[in-house]
Design a protein around this nucleic acid. Sequence first.
DNA 1: CTGAAAGCGCTTACAG
DNA 2: CTGAAAGCGCTTACAG
Lengths: 341, 341
Amino acid sequence: MKRRPTIIDVARKAGVSKSTVSLVLQNSPQVRAETRDLVRAAIADIGYFYNRAAANLRMSNAGLIGLVINDLRNPFFTEFATSLQMALSARGYAAVVANTDEDPDVQAQVVGAMLEHGVSALIISPAYGKEPATFDPIVRAAIPAMQVLRNVEPRMDLFPFAVPDYVEGGRLATEHLLEAGARRIAFVGGLQGRAVTRERMSGYHAALKKAGREPLVLTGRATRAFGRQAARRLADDHPEVDAALCFNDLVALGMLAGCAEIGREVGKDFRIVGFDDIEECAQAWPSLSSVHCDIAGFGERIAATVLDWLEDGVTPPPQTLTPVELVVRESSRGRSANAFS
Amino acid sequence: MKRRPTIIDVARKAGVSKSTVSLVLQNSPQVRAETRDLVRAAIADIGYFYNRAAANLRMSNAGLIGLVINDLRNPFFTEFATSLQMALSARGYAAVVANTDEDPDVQAQVVGAMLEHGVSALIISPAYGKEPATFDPIVRAAIPAMQVLRNVEPRMDLFPFAVPDYVEGGRLATEHLLEAGARRIAFVGGLQGRAVTRERMSGYHAALKKAGREPLVLTGRATRAFGRQAARRLADDHPEVDAALCFNDLVALGMLAGCAEIGREVGKDFRIVGFDDIEECAQAWPSLSSVHCDIAGFGERIAATVLDWLEDGVTPPPQTLTPVELVVRESSRGRSANAFS
DNA sequence: CTGAAAGCGCTTACAG
DNA sequence: CTGAAAGCGCTTACAG
């Protein structure tokens, strides 16, 4: 395992000084074309590659961005993280990513590690709890940092927050179900008291109130398993309920499975709308209506926001709401022609 | 935005030399307890945190591991990447991760970027195509690098390969379907000619041959959409087929949806087995039998293998097959009692 | 247009 | 047990 070649090896090979090599590396116009080509040839020849850690020591912009996610196995967050990472990569940054699995201790640990690695900025979809352990070190490091999708840290001047407009999404979905003829609409899933649940629910409450209908809320974990149980519970305990707005698509997809299991025909006997519009919604059967949050676009937007902040000092506003829209599919529209067995 | 504190600031504050601070940072036993506490207090006081880039410059082990994945949105790879990342994190390493979206150019670019960032090792689930552009630079960097899940680079001494035992999985699943009474079993999904497809299929072929049955292969993309179409095509063109072994769970879940759509009762009229056993299998309805590859365990194992290689020079064998097992659920066993509507 | 020199924040022998 | 000094691979004024 031989030594990694350095700028000095290149300089020696090309017969110039290491300063010149450095200038070539940075595409400086002040080096003569022939010299540049000479250096380039030497670089290719000895297989030199840039050492960013060393450069960073002088320049202090490592080109590393930290990405900390509370639940990376959830397709919603996967999609977000992936599109964000690819957007960063396209602008020449690498992403250090970590999943915290909703554990604030893990979160504090990985954030600390990322700061040690000298990330130039941090994007965090935080776990709930022990906020200071995570956020105080970031304040000390004085790097751009955004919280996304969940707002757990009140200092939004320091940690600007961005999120799709969940309230509007909840309203749109509820109004759609009402227009489609639903008489009694339940809100299913989402942990009680969490901001995200509250927001998604508040659009639902507002729309029902306006229509003079009574809400029915079944909070619970945001999982397929909970959705599946909820389908059964709703049928048993609240047979009058003929529609559900779900906290997210996983719950909705779980309800789809649950309805199939108990023989309730979704789109006919019962209408379901999910939230997030993950890829699977269009592939499910019946296909699932959902509040489209354009999470891929959201990821790209966050990447751009953070890099503009980092590179040009454009501080984002303390709070950004991105637009959402409702995508109506079979689960709330009624079945397509080939739907009977 | 003030300067990040350094070891020298700490030294000044604690009234010792920077060497002493460095020793404290490394928990060296050769520094007196009182001095250590003094230094620790100073560290906490001025909010110092370690600069790994600088340390790395001297030591050349950045504690960064590169993770390059061909399709990070696929839950199978998400699960792998996440468990790997968390295992690395637990051993004090950070993961730089990148999705290539099956694009070999993107892959070459991100691998180059990671090498510049001085990753100490690389784990890659490669895209197909342009192998030299990705792998030659890794060879020059002379760092431990493994290919996982797909074997595209023949130099397996340089890039040891690890993968679950797909052949065995295909065999197990096929034998199970035969035992369950299936008369004609199709293999559905997976791109023709790819090693993964070939392996998963070869267990299927072997088992059928042994039983004296004819194979029927329907290759295609490994997506829900393809699975859904395939369900219809199979019913239309090959009504005698009464079971399917799918290339992966996405295809199988797509078939589940497709069967629901055309009114074919899975578990009764038709049996389906998937491959990978992603989390959703247990939550689907009917629940999906699948070849369990323990991908979370696989991720942890790879993390351990790479770190042992990096830290202790334990070179992995050129090829590792990890065990798989079949998990039988409703989709191939017959419905549970509550299954009629 | 190119070279010599200092410095980024650490670690590591080497003295004391 | 602790300090002074060199060096890791770069960049950046500053001379020439």
